[in-house]
Design a protein around this nucleic acid. Structure first.
Lengths: 238, 238
DNA sequence: GCGATGCTTCGGCCGTGGCCGAAGCATCGG
DNA sequence: CCGATGCTTCGGCCACGGCCGAAGCATCGC
């Protein structure tokens, strides 16, 4: 009767993810966008009542959170821990029965850069995080990080506002791990804003029907000049 | 119709984990030991036929592997990716609805040192890995690692045989990530042998009814002198 | 060979949970 | 106010899958 209670909870959570409709819903929310119930119903390929029941169960299990806005209800992933668990399962599903890495073109793009929840992951994100640490712009310890004064200036120049009085309780700088790289990368508000800026500047663009991100020509230059990332890391996957 | 196929697979895998009996079976196997069908049936609290059916499904889904030995059949976790996914879910289950870390005594011990599948995880394992890298005894790149010549000597002195012609196809040195530390630590055959030696030397001992490991007095001295780990990291959790 | 032990397959029972259509609240726009 | 839109609740249908006991293979010890 070890962590019996714990095993119960694990089973409950896994069972929540272990349904086609709910997995599709979570998959859709992994983009980081908050979506309405109807959109999610459509995405999961089920009727509105069915989706509603699924969403209620996911909220009840604290896998997703809901925010009502007028007559819409916006659902989103509840925490980065949820995104994390889903990514792990996703990784397991991808390598599944195979012995060695499949390395399809889609897979290569995913490994280079992709969105994870609402920030970036993959080689690009890991390298950016390393670069920020190496330059003393952020300090990372355990799972959380701090922005240094140098960093504050740097991010301001880059167009990222780090309001000292955040209205959101969400941590500014958090690390999130990476199934393809086995390294940490930035999440939290800072990670989200880095993705935001990168998209705004057209340094990366979402690839169709996937969470993979493509690095544009501008991006190759920008990431190289601004963050000092090596060019070969930024080139399109071979 | 994005990664619809992928979402299907994720749901299938999660559904496998999402059953009390199967979660208990996996939980038991997370110790890294290979167990027989009857033992697992007992552990899951179900009859032999029921357990057999569950085990067959888990094998079919490539979550566990089986090896027959005489009239016994030994089951074990199929890969570190499975152990990884289970740990992620375990982490999610632990923090679940709560806002901040619970930090019970059990939890503190788990964060300091525990077994992950068949090797060590937690602060201790992460620090050991860092120390080995810093001393140039291993080189880690991407997910896999190499033992240097210096390292080979070091491990031989430590009592770990690294036969150049391994009969097992299992990689010697692999990294595995860590939910509590968000850092990589050593898995693979080397990681397993490090745990082995640490247990043999009574530097760590399994705590009752848990995957947590306690660091003994001998261990504090040993890890400090042999790996150069700081003493405060080795002290019992406050 | 023989029984004992370990494990799986078979057959049948039953409950949980998925699904939808219809109806019920809530909110917006006019 | 009214209808339209977004979402949930209700009621009922159905099947997937978990559970066990009994029986069937396989392997060991003698």
């Amino acid at each position: 009767m070890t962590n019996q209670a714990s095993a119960t909870t694990i089973a409950a959570i896994a069972a929540l993810i272990g349904d086609m409709a709910r997995a599709n819903i979570l998959s859709a929310l992994m983009s980081g966008k908050a979506l309405t119930a109807t959109e999610l119903a459509h995405h999961a390929g089920v009727s509105a009542p069915t989706a509603s029941a699924h969403l209620a169960r996911l909220v009840d299990g604290h896998l997703i959170a809901v925010e009502k806005q007028g007559r819409h209800r916006y659902y989103r992933i509840a925490s980065s821990a949820v995104a994390d668990a889903f990514e792990s399962l996703s990784h397991l599903a991808a390598i599944g029965p195979k012995r060695h890495r499949p390395t399809g073109p889609r897979d290569l793009a995913m490994r280079q850069a992709r969105t994870c929840y609402d920030h970036m992951a993959g080689r690009l994100a890991v390298a950016m995080t390393d670069a920020l640490i190496a330059r003393g712009l952020i300090v990372v310890e355990d799972r959380s990080g701090l922005v240094t004064n140098d960093g504050r200036r740097f991010f301001a120049d880059f167009g990222i506002e780090l309001d000292p009085k955040p209205k959101s309780a969400r941590p500014l700088c958090r690390t999130c791990l990476d199934w393809s790289e086995r390294r940490m990368h930035l999440g939290g508000r800072l990670g989200a804003q880095l993705l935001d800026q990168s998209l705004k500047r057209h340094w990366v663009r979402p690839l169709t029907d996937s969470r993979a991100l493509g690095i544009t020509r501008d991006g190759e230059r920008g990431f190289h000049e601004t963050f000092g990332l090596p060019l070969d890391l930024l080139a399109p996957p071979r």
